[in-house]
Design a protein around this nucleic acid. Sequence first.
DNA 1: CTGAAATATCGTAGGTCTTC
DNA 2: GAAGACCTACGATATTTCAG
Length: 336
Amino acid sequence: MVREKNSVTSVHLTARDLALFKKLSAAGWLTSTQIRNHFFPQKSTNAVCKRLRKLAEERYIALARTSSTEAGLYRLAGRGKLALIEHAQGDAADIAIPTQLPRTVKHFVAVNNLRFHFEKLTDPNGSRLMFFLSERELCRPYQDSKAMLHPTLALFKMYRIIPDAIARVRIVQGGRVQEMDLAVEYDAGTEHANFFGRTKIRQYGALFARHHEQLGNFKVLTFAERIGRIVSLMRQVVQHQPPRHLFYFALMGKLNQNLWLEDAIFLDPDDYFVCTRQGHRAVVVEQELHAEVLPKHALITLPATSPYKVSLREEREERITPQNMQEYNHINRAVI
DNA sequence: CTGAAATATCGTAGGTCTTC
DNA sequence: GAAGACCTACGATATTTCAG
């Protein structure tokens, strides 16, 4: 608890407030909904609003609204930054206050939703998130957490890749500990799937093919809102034939369940499509799937990325239950 | 069908009341 | 006295309705 001097109206900063400031410093902007879900569990939206209003009144944070029917977006303000430096041993150089709203608010908000989901990632064996750095943080000058990423970041720069976020996950399974680096992409479905193919798939593919020993266990996870979109993106992957087991896709909504680390929510394009040649043309066709077998993967059991292009497929364990199978059934109708 | 008016919807502002 | 529930008001958008 901290009491500000010489002001009767000043608020007492709580540990929660400081945690919020810290998160705002990392995320840039957070919606009132995100703040409620993360810092005010089981509390009413009104109560959250009220607290945020108080903090905004005293210039710890600031509010920007895009419309009266959309959730407001909060950022750190001057006094919030000061409080953070004072009470959280922060370095002023590490705290950047955004001056204006990001160009694509929806996309930005979604990436921060991914941030929260990744931060919740844990399992009884001790698997956990090591760090999650969004594009905003990756673009900023030196930081402690970025030091260990430096070689990877240099590679990304070389290949002109700017992921929406980079996450490192430590996975503990059967006494074995391994770390996995994840390029995290959120696809809002606003561009042609073709564009995703020409940029992301090509660049990540080339990067991994040439530097897999340096990248280690590395994946590109792309999240989208609708299965139809994922199908389009998966077709692009198969058409471009990047190293296999590099690209995985999941629905944003699948992350809402706790313990998604162990849930089979990731789709491998090579499970669903195959690329065949017709003359000079590469044609992507649907894989033949047994009706009751719809391959999905959990993050902890993703097969190791192979530096080679897709060839003969090996057998894999599937984790399909009759309950979750239904959701992917229409995938067959959505294609072609 | 068109376009404007009416109505519904949503998140925030700000008040009172209760509880600890 | 601070946090939070509950209530009403407000501003702006989104959707529906309806006359011409």
